[in-house]
Design a protein around this nucleic acid. Structure first.
Length: 587
RNA sequence: GCGGUCGUAGUCUAGUUUGGUUAGGACAUCAGCCUGCCACGCUGACGACCCGGGUUCAAAUCCCGGCGACCGCACCA
């Protein structure tokens, strides 16, 4: 494994990605802009197939709802979600050496001001605090320029001539939370349920320099799973409870160790390593996803975030990481327990009721003392104030009034003295059939582009000095290559016929007649085409073709008429390559 | 944003030190010939000096500025 520039897998993959059209930096004709990529034909297809895999595992199998909401949201949404406050950082620059620092971090380090306090400070307050404490550049001792805010959300105005600020969403999650009421109705008002959204998100990164790993515009798959905190059990846990997870816990990390433990899902819960059943369930599914796109389990792990690393909305948070050649462990998904943070915040900010109502299995009978003002007595006693006093009285606790009357012979509401004959008490039996509460949320969130990158890296192989992209066949951008062995004697026409047949069957097939057969195989290997079907002279006489395996270069011979069914099974992963026909001896 | 290194066809690169004819090669791509299963060979074609300014008779080459890339710093909800 090399870390030298120009010789590692990252470089090799970026090179092949440009050359073969997986992806490249956008706006190249204008010099390119960092943090934006264009997916070419192969990359776009690969990405779609990976996202289809997410849908297969999360949407279809778990009955999760998929939505698509807008990228731009009004300021209020991100004020409520906390992003306006948390997505900006006060930066300060040394006037002498130009080194930059987080102003809040400096204050925390050099003064006794806590992180929660610095968070609330204005730029002016920070400036004053820096001056007051005579903090200078830790590098060179230089004086600091005034602090500036760096907002990592893209800001815009909504509508022409408008002063209405809008932001590009830095995550797709808020698009789900703000639509909660409708979605809950669509889930037939039952918990638990989940909503997923796969779409673009924007983050104005200061330095987005790692290809697909850190983009300013990227695709995120956010799944918000809503459940009743009093019923946190995951009914699907059995499906995954014996699955093993590799975990690096925060307690180890705090001590500077990255030592991982390996536990089953069941053990993780029993030992209270992961607090939420649903969270660990999704972590197990996430492992399955990564495994299916080609990352072996030993190169995957979950790392628990330290308290100061966690997002502002999360209690417990694990990042799923994959080992990559250039950077070591990198995050591909985050698993956060967001509690009721988001819904509660939007409820408060919007005034909309985002509670759900839960009916108890057995209604609870409650005996309640109810107070009733006796207006016939209060009227003469309080005259014009009577109605006001009665209203105040109704807001008071009946129990409290009763106790006070019994004990003192009167009850004071503001300056009014209530006497026993002013009120009547009755005992009312009410049946409470349920309660209202805000659901809790666990969120698995995937970076689609990072999934594409790790897929490419794990598919990348070199065999006999040739590059093979060994994509798992369920996500390969092109499924089948069709080749006439030579371009004469009617083989081309026969191959075209074959190609048409496959396309009509719904396969993604490419026809290639240019160059020698070996060259075409090599070309297809590099594009990650799992199977090559070659039309040769035997095809013309007996209707059979050879099928070549991209990874082993083995070949089988099979009758054309059997192909549609066999290939369907093969690409669903139900049969092996050897089951496609009779194995040929390769010279 | 800072510092270091760098920027020549789709890709890899020669040329830059010491300015000078038509910027050379390889691979890939396309057209044709060839073809009997792993990048064969032959012929031809397409295709580049990151952008802008300056110095000079003359700039890929020297100088300045910009843009971009990589590495490091910082940042990364």
């Amino acid at each position: 494994m090399s870390n030298e520039t120009g010789s590692d897998k990252f470089t090799a993959i970026n090179e092949i990605a440009r050359r073969r059209g997986f992806f490249w930096q956008s706006y190249e004709i204008y010099g390119g802009v960092g943090g934006f990529v264009t997916y070419g034909p192969l990359g776009a297809k690969l990405k779609q197939n990976i996202e289809r895999k997410i849908r297969e595992l999360f949407v279809n199998k778990l009955g999760i709802l998929e939505i698509e909401s807008s990228v731009i949201a009004p300021r209020k949404v991100f004020e409520a979600s906390g992003h306006v406050n948390h997505f900006k950082e006060p930066m300060i620059e040394c006037s002498k050496c130009n080194k930059r620092f987080r102003a809040d971090h400096l204050l925390q380090e050099y003064t006794k001001i806590s992180a929660t306090e610095t968070e609330k400070m204005s730029l002016e307050e920070i400036k004053q605090a820096i001056e007051k404490n005579a903090i200078t550049c830790p590098e060179c001792g230089g004086i600091f320029n005034p602090p500036k805010q760096f907002l990592t959300m893209f800001e815009t105005t909504i509508g022409p001539y408008s002063a209405a600020t809008g932001y590009g969403r830095p995550e797709a999650a808020q698009g789900i939370f703000v639509e909660f009421s409708r979605l809950y109705k669509m889930a037939r008002e039952k918990l638990p349920f989940g909503v997923i959204q796969i779409g673009h998100a924007l983050r104005n990164e200061i330095s987005p320099r790692q290809g697909l790993m850190r983009l300013r515009e990227f695709t995120i798959a956010d799944l918000e799973f809503f459940f009743d905190p009093e019923m946190p059990c995951c009914h699907l846990l059995k499906d995954v409870e014996s699955e093993t997870l590799t975990l690096v816990l925060s307690e180890k990390r705090a001590k500077g160790s990255e030592e991982a433990i390996s536990v089953t899902v069941k053990e993780a819960l029993e030992q209270k390593i992961v607090s939420s059943e649903w969270q660990v369930f999704f972590m197990a599914i996430a492992k399955k996803l990564l495994t299916e796109i080609g990352v072996p389990p030993e190169n995957q792990r979950f790392i628990e975030k330290l308290p100061w690393e966690k997002a502002h909305y999360a209690t417990q948070c694990f990042d799923q990481e994959v080992y990559v050649d250039r950077w070591g462990w990198v995050e591909v998904s985050g698993h956060a327990y967001r509690t009721d943070y988001d819904l509660a915040s939007h409820m408060k900010a919007s005034g909309a009721d985002l509670c759900v109502y839960k009916e108890y299995e057995t209604p609870v009978e409650q005996k309640q003392v109810v107070l009733k003002p006796v207006m016939a007595k209060m009227g003469p006693a309080f005259k014009a104030e009577a109605t006001k006093v009665a209203d105040l009285l109704l807001k008071a606790s009946a129990e409290e009034v009763a106790t006070s009357l019994e004990k003192n012979g009167y009850y004071m509401v503001e300056n009014y003295r209530i006497l026993p004959n002013h009120v009547d008490f009755s005992c009312q039996e009410t049946v409470v059939r349920g309660k209202r509460f805000i659901p809790h949320v666990v969120e698995p969130s995937f970076g689609s582009d990072r999934l594409v990158y790790v897929t490419l890296e794990y598919a990348y192989h070199v065999k006999d000095d040739r590059v093979l992209m060994s994509f798992p066949r369920t996500i390969a951008p092109t499924q089948i290559g069709v080749y006439p062995l030579v371009s004469k004697d009617g083989l081309v026409e026969k191959a075209e016929e074959m190609h048409k047949l496959l396309v009509n069957e719904g396969f993604t097939a490419e026809f290639d007649e240019t160059g020698s057969i070996g060259r075409r195989y090599a070309r297809a290997d590099e594009a990650g085409v799992p199977l090559g079907i070659t039309i040769d002279y035997d095809t013309m006489s007996d209707g059979t073709v050879t099928i070549r395996n991209r990874d082993s270069w083995q070949q089988v011979r099979s009758p054309i008429k059997d192909l549609p069914e066999l290939l369907q099974k093969y690409f669903k992963g139900k049969i092996h390559f050897e089951d496609l026909g009779t194995l040929l001896q390769v010279k």
